[in-house]
Amino acid sequence: MYGSWGKGPVMTLTMQKFTTLSSVAAPIMRVNIDTDAIIPSREMKGVTKDGLSVGMFANWRYTDVDARVENPDFILNKAPFRDAEILLSGENFGCGSSREHAVWALKEWGIRCVIAPSFGTIFFGNCVRNGILPVALPETVVKAFAESAEAGAQTAIFVIDLPSQMVTGPTGDSHDFDIAPADKEMLVEGLDPIGLTLKRDDEILAFRKTDEVKRPWVYL
């Protein structure tokens, strides 16, 4: 798994692939959900990508954060949404801090896809680098999805097909979504982006050689 820290060097790095997904979806329909809400600072307790899901949405999910007393009203504490692999949310999801811990927490919890009208830019990039698919759809569509997710509970299955860039809701309505080809490729192939870039090493070194002459002050 890309990013796992074994004892020795990990030479073959691959990310979890994303092709299709069928799951119930948990709606948290607020706008501007920030990464501090997804993983509060005090839940980032070590230099690690692991063990973060227990702190995910800590301030909303627990009535007593320290004692980890669950708030029964929070959607991810309710069946069947506890097992949802899809989140539905309002615009600008994942805004704020760049902390990739937000994505690592969601991933460890089991979230594989977030559907919202828009996303924080850094959060979006962090998702695609960790095998989570961020899907931007018009607000009216996301709201309708949220209603059918709540109404149908365990029978409200959403189907996501990344190769064909299509989401199908429980009522059978399908919606296309856009994704940058490079992001799609990274998710579908589970490729290691560093390895891909290093294949262009000649170009990088050639750029540097020319640039050192043009902008010598850059090169400390």
Partner: peptide, 18 residues
Amino acid sequence: IGSTEGEHALATKTLAVN
């Protein structure tokens, strides 16, 4: 950026950016 993109920038001196 995130920490994973940070690794990319450190290892390659570049980033792939939309």
